[in-house]
């Protein structure tokens, strides 16, 4: 797919599967099962409720998620599938590979490698000065989110 010259609106056009992955990541991170409304709030993007609901439903049909009734909606969580999102096989195999340092050829590119000491301050400053007020509220909301259901 082509790379657009102007950035798309926030929450806009995604490559195939991107929304599914975001939702799955959201559910993986949550301690509890989530309703579509909770997923929508968690993702905090300009997405339609129906989009979230439909995607969750489709993922449930594929067996990736399980659900239980929660009021008028369903609450979704990751299914207990050893070959699903929380794949133990992957975890074990890749841990062995990474720990033994066998990936000298660098087949796997990690999102971040370890930091040099001089870079830590630079990045800390970057975070401090580029946080808009909404992001600070975000952090507060996240830390209080771990309440009952």
């Amino acid at each position: 797919m082509g790379i657009s010259t102007s950035p798309p609106p926030k929450g806009g056009r995604r490559p195939r599967g991107a929304l599914e992955r975001e939702i799955l990541a959201c559910l993986a991170e949550a301690d509890d099962s989530l309703t579509p409304a909770q997923v929508l709030a968690s993702l905090d993007q300009e997405l339609a409720y129906t989009t979230i609901m439909t995607t969750l439903s489709r993922l449930h049909e594929k067996g990736v998620l399980r659900r239980e009734p929660a009021g008028r909606a369903y609450a979704y969580s990751l299914a207990d599938d050893p070959e699903g999102v929380r794949s133990i096989a992957v975890a074990q195999r890749m841990r062995r590979l990474l720990e033994t340092g066998a990936d000298r050829a660098g087949v796997l590119a990690h999102f971040v490698a370890d930091l040099r000491p001089e870079d830590e301050q630079l990045l800390a400053d970057l975070l401090a000065e580029s946080r808009p007020a909404s992001a600070r509220d975000d952090d507060q909301r996240r830390s209080t989110h771990r309440g009952p259901g």
């Binding site: 599967g17 599914e20 992955r21 799955l24 990541a25 993986a28 993922l59 594929k62 067996g63 990736v64 599938d81 070959e83 699903g84 999102v85 929380r86 794949s87 096989a89 992957v90 975890a91 195999r93 890749m94 841990r95 990690h110 999102f111 971040v112």
Partner: peptide, 19 residues
């Protein structure tokens, strides 16, 4: 070995942030 229906996402339990 990972399911074909997870749209490619795999989450591993680990204390070290990595992707």
């Amino acid at each position: 070995r990972c399911g074909a229906h997870t749209h490619g996402l795999v989450v591993v339990e680990d204390d070290v942030p990595d992707a």
